[in-house]
Amino acid sequence: MSLTQQDVARIAKLARIAVTEQEIDAIGQQLNDIFGLIEKMQAVNTDNVEPMAHPQDVALRLRADAVTEQDRRDAFMALAPQTEAGLFLVPKVIE
C-alpha cells in the first residue's frame, strides 16, 4: 500500500493533529516506510488463532457501586487552561 497526500491529511484530521503543507510529504514518506514494515504481517496464516489482548487472559473485575473517591474538584480544576464557575471553558460548540 502507499498513502497519498490526501490519505495523510485525512489521518491527521482523524488524529486531530494540524499538519502543514510543508510537513505532509515527509510524514507520508515515514508512514509509508512504517506500513512497509507492518505489511509483513499479512503473509502469515492466522486462521483459527484467537487474538490475544492480555497475557494472562484475565476477566475484568467488577466492583461495588459505591463512592470511593474524595471530592477534589478544586485541585483538579486548577490544572485546566481555562475554567469558570466550576466548568471547563472551550470555544463555542453549538450556536
Binding site: Q42, V44, T46, V49, P51, M52, A53
Partner: peptide, 14 residues
C-alpha cells in the same frame, strides 16, 4: 486487517 491481525500474531509469539 491490522489490530486483530497483530493480536493474533501476538498469540503466536506468546
Amino acid at each position: 486487517a491490522y489490530y486483530i491481525k497483530a493480536q493474533k500474531i501476538r498469540r503466536l509469539i506468546a
